Deep mutational scan, measured.
Amino acid sequence: TTVKVNGTKYKFDTPEEAQKFAKKAADKYNLKVVVDGDDLRVE
Rank of each mutant, 00 (worst) to 15 (best):
N30Q: 10
K28I: 11
E16A: 10
D39H: 10
E17W: 01
E16Y: 07
T8W: 12
D39C: 15
Y10V: 04
V35A: 10
Y29S: 05
N30S: 08
K32C: 11
V42T: 04
V3M: 00
Y10C: 06
Q19Y: 15
V3A: 01
A26V: 03
K4G: 04
F12N: 00
V34Y: 13
Q19C: 12
G37N: 06
K32H: 12
N6K: 07
A18V: 00
N30W: 06
T14W: 02
A26I: 03
T1W: 14
K28G: 07
T8S: 08
L40S: 02
V42P: 03
Y10L: 04
D36Q: 06
G7F: 04
K24W: 15
D36Y: 07
Y29E: 06
K23V: 08
K4E: 13
E17F: 02
F21E: 03
K28L: 13
K9A: 14
K11N: 11
K20R: 13
V34T: 10
D27K: 12
F12G: 00
G7W: 03
T14I: 04
D36M: 07
D39S: 12
A26E: 05
K11G: 05
V33T: 02
P15A: 11
R41F: 09
L31K: 07
K23D: 10
A18D: 00
V3P: 00
T2N: 06
G7T: 04
K4M: 15
G37F: 04
V35H: 09
V3F: 00
T2E: 05
V35F: 13
N30R: 07
V42Q: 03
K32M: 12
F12P: 00
V5H: 05
V33N: 01
Y29I: 04
K28N: 07
P15Q: 08
Y10M: 04
T14A: 03
L31F: 09
F12E: 01
K9I: 15
K23P: 01
K24N: 13
Q19S: 08
V34G: 04
K11S: 12
D38F: 10
K28C: 14
Y10F: 11
N6D: 07
D27T: 09
A26S: 06
G7Y: 04
K20S: 13
E16N: 06
A18S: 02
A26T: 03
F12D: 00
G37H: 05
V33D: 02
E17M: 08
D27W: 09
Y10I: 06
K24R: 12
T8K: 14
K11D: 08
A18G: 02
E16Q: 10
E43K: 06
A22R: 00
V34W: 11
A22S: 02
L40P: 03
V35S: 08
L31E: 05
T2W: 12
Y29T: 05
E16W: 07
E16D: 09
V42Y: 04
D36R: 04
E43G: 13
T2K: 03
K20G: 07
F21N: 01
V5Q: 01
P15N: 07
D39L: 14
D36F: 06
